[in-house]
Amino acid sequence: MHQTDKQSLKAVILEDERMFAEMLSMLLRNISDVNVCEVAHSVAAGISACATHKPDLLLLDLFLPDGSGLRVAQHLLREINPDAQVIVLSGEADNFIAPQWLDPHLGAIVDKASAYNTLLNPIRQMMGKIQPYSLTQNPRDLFTRREMQIFMLIGEGLRNQDIAERMERSVSTILTHRRNITRKMGMSGSRLVRAATQYRVNFT
């Protein structure tokens, strides 16, 4: 078997929609130093793929024919590679709340409908190939619809509790989306607030 350069990012894709999985595979192969080791379509196949390849990155669908893709992520992180990163693929990305054990390893939550436009940035960030965010970049190219709503409210100066009340969501849900915004932009705290405020001034 061909040996991958030790500095390359080994990736496993876990997705039961085969055409979508192939699109993801082609997309990742366009990134230099990313090696797509295997595409799996079930929990059982995903666990086997992770055991074989010991990936640095797992892209997973939440809903698979034989269970939740989170089972594969949990097995990977606890039994195989505790430093791996996970990107969650979902048709309902706005409603996903990461379990506590996954949160430190969560690279991004990507809506399947916009995966082509939003997937490359977090992977390149993991590899240190790009600056996380530039104020010349439109956040709409990075965020899901719900994340964009929260980003705009951050720009209004609202706190998490205020945003939760405005959107009629729990604070924990807002925090999950805010962490995803932070990961995608590579900034938090006052820097994130300034970026959100500047966006409101420059783009709205």
Rank of each mutant, 00 (worst) to 15 (best):
M23R: 09
I47F: 07
S32G: 14
Q125R: 13
N180K: 08
H2W: 12
E15F: 01
K129W: 09
W101A: 11
K112P: 05
N30K: 13
N117I: 14
V34S: 02
R29G: 06
A11H: 05
I13R: 01
L142Q: 05
A11W: 01
G157C: 06
R191N: 13
L175C: 10
A196V: 03
D56V: 00
S48Q: 14
G67P: 00
W101C: 11
K112S: 00
S134W: 10
D33F: 09
T204Y: 07
F143Q: 01
N117C: 12
P104L: 13
M126G: 09
G186S: 08
F143H: 00
S42F: 03
M185D: 01
E168H: 13
R71I: 13
S172C: 07
I163F: 04
T204G: 05
R179G: 05
Q74D: 13
N138P: 05
L76N: 01
D56R: 07
I47Q: 00
I181S: 02
V34Q: 03
L119W: 00
L9G: 03
S68P: 08
E168V: 10
P82E: 06
T204D: 10
Q7I: 14
K54M: 12
V171R: 08
T197G: 10
P139K: 03
R191A: 15
E79I: 11
E147A: 09
S172P: 03
A45S: 09
R18Y: 14
L62R: 03
N95C: 14
R124S: 15
T176N: 12
L59M: 06
D103A: 15
R78S: 12
R146P: 04
A51H: 14
Y133Q: 04
L77A: 02
L28E: 01
M148S: 08
R18G: 10
A164P: 06
L9Q: 03
Q131D: 11
R178N: 05
R191T: 12
A40T: 07
L9K: 02
I109L: 07
I87Q: 01
L76T: 01
M1P: 07
K10G: 09
V88F: 06
L106N: 00
T136R: 12
V43R: 02
D141G: 06
H105T: 11
R178L: 12
V88T: 09
N138D: 15
P139F: 04
L58T: 00
R145Q: 13
P122N: 10
P65T: 04
G46F: 00
M26C: 08
L59N: 03
S170K: 11
P104Y: 06
P55H: 05
I154P: 02
F151Q: 02
L77S: 04
G67N: 07
T176H: 08
V171Y: 08
I123M: 01
N117P: 06
G155P: 01
L64P: 00
F20Q: 04
A21Y: 00
L119G: 02
H75C: 09
M19V: 13
A49F: 01
A113N: 08
E79Q: 15
G67T: 06
V193P: 04
V201H: 11
R146N: 10
Q131H: 11
Y116L: 15
L175E: 14
M1S: 11
P132A: 07
